[in-house]
Design a protein around this nucleic acid. Sequence first.
DNA 1: CACAGAAACGGACTATAGTCCAGTTAGCTT
DNA 2: AAGCTAACTGGACTATAGTCCGTTTCTGTG
Lengths: 197, 197
Amino acid sequence: MLMDEPPRERADAARNRLKVLAAAAKLFRDKGVDGVSMDAVAAAAGVGKGTLFRRFGDKSGLAVALLDERERELQAGILSGPPPLGPGAPAAERLAAFTDAYLDYVLGHLDLVRMSETASPGARYRIGAYRFWRRHVAILLAELRPGCDADPLAHAVLASLAAEQVTALVAEYGEERARKAIHALVPGWADPAGSRG
Amino acid sequence: MLMDEPPRERADAARNRLKVLAAAAKLFRDKGVDGVSMDAVAAAAGVGKGTLFRRFGDKSGLAVALLDERERELQAGILSGPPPLGPGAPAAERLAAFTDAYLDYVLGHLDLVRMSETASPGARYRIGAYRFWRRHVAILLAELRPGCDADPLAHAVLASLAAEQVTALVAEYGEERARKAIHALVPGWADPAGSRG
DNA sequence: CACAGAAACGGACTATAGTCCAGTTAGCTT
DNA sequence: AAGCTAACTGGACTATAGTCCGTTTCTGTG
């Protein structure tokens, strides 16, 4: 018997959800994430503002919904993909691979990720996916540096991967140097002498 | 001969600047930074909104003006105070001391610093003082890890000290563990085996 | 002191995120 | 199939950041 089964989404709600996501994706593509207001999204989707906000909570929720698929891909790669991103490789290599893959993800959707992280104060840390990244990094750190306080440390490590941070870094130094710097910091910190264990 | 001498501030402008700063400081103290609108500041100071924005640019500019004195103290300590914060100590110790002192500064004015950094996108990196902290850290990193790309690296290192980041860390783990985690990351990265030459 | 030009003033105005609630509709129940 | 209820809808409403520009005030000059 299925208890607590979440009530199925109503047909009109599903229809509107898809209309909103399609309209938002198109508008963001055409005018850039920063040039599109929530009113514009609602109008283009042909729904009211109330519907838009009821469904996605706020601007950051809309961004998260649009990023959902890409996030899942990355999560799947971490949980069950081939090493070194997936299980099987030494922790140091997995951390480096995660940093790489996460940077690919952020740089591939910079404006959208930034919106998802900055639309409201502290939004970044409340996104479900953030918990996932943090947990993954914490597990790797605990393995690399036994005895360290891995959870808050993972938080601090992830700071350099925040979209706002990456945006500034890339704008000033270009993608190449930005990637290298973050790489030197994150996996370099956890395993300063290279894989030796 | 003095060229380009900036025109002296007009008397009415100076008067209003002081009125605004006093009113803003009092309001922020009484109601918290997040509970005060720019309209409220203007009304309490007895000036128009136009005056407020002309003078301070935006909310983050107002925060910066209020933090100015504390920032200068920290900068003075770095440039000419006693070691290890000031010149004279080894780079590793100076970096640790800077991290400590900067955390004192941020934690002492958390809401105000956060507002100065997040009022507009990328505000943090445009603040004059940020350039100073980054340059200081870059110089120390270059000394500790010769050959590294110190400027972007300093950027990435400072990410863990962003007010938004510190706020989340402290809220979840408390000040003690948050401080230790950041300490483990920043100076620990630059000098993983302790000061050894 | 009177004047003129520059600088500052201030409040009405715009744009936008997010809330609210009266009306509508889907989908279960009988 | 009819009715009931909970969920959904949408647009008017609020709050707030930031802009604009006609008016006022300052300050240097004759």
